[in-house]
């Protein structure tokens, strides 16, 4: 069943997808940092307030993924920021996250060598988001 985009239910399903992925488990071995996704508000897309997704990832597993404020996500070790529409493009496979970062469509804050070392893990994590059926606010 589809869940509302960037809601707590979405976060729970996203976590389940990550933990079900053997590719992620092996690619993210050794990862021990938190990752925050800042989803910037776009009121004209019926996404009126920015949200933050906080991911507690450790050694190939997602210990917790929660949705809170943008400020919560900004406290993480790695922060990726983009407007709602960009994240929707990533989740619907319209935009490749790696390309998005190289183009500055997704803004990354954090230690670059570390994130580059775990490119495969971050690509698989993006794949996991695409497996969660989502109800997009601007499509209702």
């Amino acid at each position: 069943m589809a869940v509302k985009a960037f809601s707590s239910e979405w976060a729970e399903q996203f976590k389940d997808e990550v933990n079900a992925s053997s590719v992620y488990k092996s690619a993210a071995k050794g990862w021990k940092w938190t990752v925050g996704l800042v989803v910037e508000a776009e009121p004209d897309k019926k996404f009126p307030e920015s949200r933050g997704v906080v991911m507690d990832l450790f050694d190939g597993t997602a210990r917790a993924i929660t949705v809170g404020t943008a400020a919560d996500a900004q406290k993480c070790d790695f922060v990726i920021t983009a407007p709602y529409t960009r994240w929707k493009q990533v989740a619907t496979k319209e935009l490749d996250a790696t390309k998005g970062m190289l183009q500055g469509k997704l803004k990354l804050k954090g230690d670059l060598p570390t994130i580059v070392r775990y490119t495969k893990a971050s690509q698989e994590m993006t794949e996991c988001t695409t497996r969660v059926p989502v109800e997009w606010p601007d499509e209702n």
């Binding site: 190289l102 183009q103 469509k105 060598p113």
Partner: peptide
Amino acid sequence: PSAFASMLGGLIDANIET
């Protein structure tokens, strides 16, 4: 600098520092 330029520059900077 483009996003790609700052990423590569930042990456090399971090690599040579460590």
